[in-house]
Amino acid sequence: MILLKFLEKSGELGLYYINQAGRMVIFLLHVIISTFKLPYYKVSNITKQIYIIGSLSIFVIVFTGAFTGMVLGLQGYNTLKKFGSEGLLGSAVALSLIRELGPVLAALMVTGRAGSAICAEIGIMRNSEQIDALECMAIDPHKYIMAPKFIATIVSMPLLTAIFNVVGIFGGYLVGVKLLGASEGSYFTSMYKDVEFQDVYMGFVKSLCFGLLIVWICAAKGFYVHYERTGGFGAEGVSRVTTYAVVLTSVSILVFDYFITSLLL
């Protein structure tokens, strides 16, 4: 009897998650198709989203980038010194930032800053019937609301990652060279020598994929807030789904990071 109940519950849960996953895939396809469909775009819609998602994240990105680079300089210098190879500090900092830490940390910061905002905004629009109102005006919310956010996030992510990397490299320089006294020349020459196109390419691919993940998960979760199993109603429903979207996005970023790395290496 208990076993039967258990089977029933787990079956129900399984169906629910399959349903959710299916909806998210359909949502993504719908957005992609409507992104490339005519009628014309309002450029102002996209630039506004780039401002909200991208420009307003710059401060956080610069801040976290600087400290990440500084701690890398600190740790790297002390570790490398043991082997007498402080000269490689520049390439160590740059490679870890460009290949790994830059894309991942920048994506996590953008998830927290912009992803949560996307999810909450769309969730509230859903709950107050604003999305229904759009549909009744024959305006496709996938095109009108989602497409600009998708474009803006995917365009912003590589740029923010680049800023993160550059600031991080100078943060490492500040600590490693100016503070701890590694050689200034070898910091940059080792970097020029060891960083290859392949590394930059990997970081670029990662940042694009993470950008898509962020906007996809956060937007879809908000868009389907009314299908949430735990009840997606009102302010609490939106707050719950936002938390869930941020957690799910962060986890997916780390999981996908592993797979992208193993594919590209």
Binding site: I124, M125, E129, C136
Partner: peptide, 29 residues
Amino acid sequence: RSYFGVLFQNAALFDSMTVFDNVALPLRE
């Protein structure tokens, strides 16, 4: 739906847009 004009019971205005932009939205899009 492009032939419809709908007033929802709760009005369902776009709450991050001004009154003017709300009414202008169907025309703009």
